[in-house]
Amino acid sequence: MSGERAVRVRVDRERCCGSGNCVLAAPEVFDQDDADGLVLLRRAEVPPELADGVRRAVDLCPAGALGLR
């Protein structure tokens, strides 16, 4: 199912365990901090064409550190 609308991503760096699954699923949206390996958002507003990757990242995050709003 392909997303029609733009989505907003929410990240919780306190919960992040740096597994990098989000970077694997949606490298255009997520990055990891060079200092501590924790999640960084490259953009909070995600265009529709990247929404599926972001949903997969939210689903794969082992720590439950990502969400949509």
């Binding site: 970077v23 694997l24 990891q32 060079d34 501590d36 390996g37």
Partner: peptide
């Protein structure tokens, strides 16, 4: 756990 794991995460990240 988080204290030690966070000293290592950057070493193993994809980049």
């Amino acid at each position: 756990h988080a204290r030690l794991r966070r000293m290592l995460t950057a070493e193993f990240m994809i980049k």
